[in-house]
């Protein structure tokens, strides 16, 4: 009986242990599931689901009611499902050249602003990388600091500078360079200034991160092999900083294209940008289906640059 009993106990033990083990494993895997699930479902509900609703409403018809659009899915008598999909809103956007012009203008303004940010940001990032360690930290902090202060107030600061009787005009008149104030506020020029001013740190930081990683020996190697500073820049530095240029440009271009505050405060009624049109369509005209359609089209315009950005981000984390 002895050995048999012992065998039985061992078997029991094994079973209990395997049960406990399974339970622990389950708990552990569930612990991971919880860590993922909370942010995952939050984003699913509050980030992804809303887009489906925007899409749905963009296909509805505007009516005077609360909410001011027709339901997309109606349960008719007998349970027959009738779906009313109206592309009217999109056709409306295409036919009215006001919207087409606004989209094109948004792309033009944010494109040119991105280029200006690059022209200013690239040498600044390069200068920061080349500075001595102590200076480098101070310069970096100076670039990041405006980012922490209110965006709205920084845009407001330019209203005071650019106004007809603002600081710049006052200064120019005082210097005797002009007699009449130049109209700068409420123009495309002011919008360019505002976008470059607000977004240039977004250009500098990815460029800095990119350049900082480059081995200084690469520049020295080029010089050693006979390349003068300009050739070194064109054959080594520039090609190796393309990822930074792309990341920085997208970080400026995408939000700038949908910008609302800057065209509204600095551009006034004279500058057409899609973010502002959308805001007005929604808040002033209460045409929600058209506003939704405007949003969907804007999203389609920006989806390609966003995917490029995503691609570069994921490649960066893989490195």
């Amino acid at each position: 009986m002895g050995p048999l009993q012992r065998g039985g106990v061992t078997k029991m033990n094994t079973r209990v242990f395997s049960y406990i083990n399974a339970w622990i494993t389950k708990l552990q895997s569930r612990w991971q599931t919880i860590v993922i699930a909370i942010p995952f479902y939050w984003l699913l509900l509050f980030f992804l689901a809303p887009f489906a609703i925007v899409l749905k409403i963009s296909l509805a018809e505007s009516i005077i009611a609360i909410p001011p659009f027709t339901p997309l899915i109606n349960f008719a008598e007998g349970g027959v499902l009738t779906i009313r999909i109206l592309f009217d809103n999109f056709i409306f956007l295409m036919e009215d050249d006001f919207y087409v012009k606004t989209y094109l203008n948004s792309i033009k303004i944010s494109g040119i602003s991105t280029l200006l940010c690059l022209l200013l940001g690239y040498p600044m990032a390069y200068g920061i990388v080349r500075a001595s360690p102590a200076t480098k930290n101070i310069l970096l902090m100076m670039v990041i600091l405006p980012f922490w202060t209110s965006f709205l107030l920084r845009v407001y600061a330019w209203m005071g500078l650019l106004a007809d009787r603002g600081t710049i005009n006052n200064l120019l008149i005082w210097l005797g360079m002009i007699d009449e104030p130049i109209r700068m506020l409420y123009s495309e020029f002011a919008v360019y200034i505002g976008i470059v001013y607000s977004y240039v740190p977004f250009m500098i930081l990815p460029l800095y991160a990119n350049m900082e990683k480059l081995d200084t020996a690469l520049h020295e190697a080029a010089a050693d092999l006979g390349a003068n500073p300009i050739t070194t820049f064109l054959t080594v530095t520039l090609p190796l900083t393309i990822p930074g240029i792309i990341a920085g440009s997208l970080l400026v271009f995408i939000p700038a294209a949908g910008e609302f505050v800057i065209p509204d405060l600095l551009g006034g009624g004279n500058v057409l940008m899609i973010g502002r049109v959308l805001y007005n369509e929604f808040n002033s005209n209460h045409d929600w289906p058209v506003a939704s359609a405007v949003a969907i089209v804007l999203l389609l315009v920006l989806v390609l640059p966003m995917m490029v950005y995503q691609y570069y981000q994921s490649r960066k984390t893989e490195d």
Binding site: I36, P39, F40, L43, L44, L45, F46, F47, L48, A49, P50, F51, I53, V54, I57, L250, L251, I254, P255, A257, G258, E259, F260, G275, L278, Y279, F282, W288, A291, S292, A295, L298, L299, L302, M306, Y309, Q310, Q313, S314
Partner: peptide, 23 residues
Amino acid sequence: FSGMISAPLVMPEVITGLSLLLL
């Protein structure tokens, strides 16, 4: 998941705002 995490960084605010309101 990673797409939903990084998309809000570049999403124009007007779109995020509008879609959340409709939600």
